[in-house]
Amino acid sequence: MSGNAKLSVGGRILNRVSGGNLLLLLLRRWDARVALAILTLLALSGIAPGLFVGPLQTATTAEAAPLLPPSGAHLFGTDDLGRDLLNLTVHGARISLVVGALSAVITLLLGGGIGMIAGYRGGRTDALLMRIADTFLILPTFVLALILAPILRELIGDQTEILGIRTTLLTIVAVIGVTSWSSTARIVRSQTLSLRERTFVERARLVGLSPMRIIARHIFPNIRTVLVANGIVVIAGSILTESTLSFIGLGDPFQPSWGTILGNAQSAAAPSLGAWWFIMAPGGAILFTVIACTIVGNAIDELLDRDVRVRR
């Protein structure tokens, strides 16, 4: 859903904390350690799901009975087709994480680019871009995504694969990116606005560097950390949006994400059958991912805030 911006923090001037430094600082906090451990485990399942649970089970390869509660043989139980839910959830990690991360990249590119341009150019460009951003900020972008996804899909067709990801999923990536960039743009703009007044930017302008070069050489390096902090929150939001879209039925049945599995559970009437395990594993995976991302994002925010305080 488009709620990713709601908890993020904006409006700070940041300084250069290098990536390695940031990680070390994060590892000093116990809550961030736990969150990073969860994210690492999820990333590993995403990278090599087969290593943990073998190939993805399908309706034809599934051998267990349908809707078995958790047992030694099936730790998380089985779904209505007899597929092992542990298998599905671990494979779902790949889709959820990849779609979440790719959407976040698009969101950050769009939001970061628009924010930097608006903040640097100022004036009418800024006013127009921020008007658009504000519109996207309040609109029910999730509903827009619902409409855009099938339109986009019919326009480009859904039979091909790009880099092993089916275009069905890529349309979801595009739709999430297009509908959730506005909060990033707002945050980046406010950073850029204050950076623009700094002496090193003024100097660069006096030396005659082109706006693009100033943005690339002087503005971007200074908002990188803001983008990292915001990016993690954006990933959480993207994963939530992806799971919701998939739950409604816009996912790809051949590459099920956590949301798709939950959609299947809903169609199979798992809640009214009392098949709680069908819901537990994929939903819990979403919950843990989003919480872990939020904790890491908040921790980075606090670290950066403290950093600013110390430097003042």
Binding site: L240, T244, F247, G259, Q266, V290
Partner: peptide, 19 residues
């Protein structure tokens, strides 16, 4: 905050309606 609405709903159905 981190729970998808629909998942929360499914949990509530399972617990309060079905069970």
């Amino acid at each position: 905050y981190s729970m998808p609405y629909f998942w929360l709903g499914m949990l509530l159905v399972t617990l309060f309606a079905t069970t």
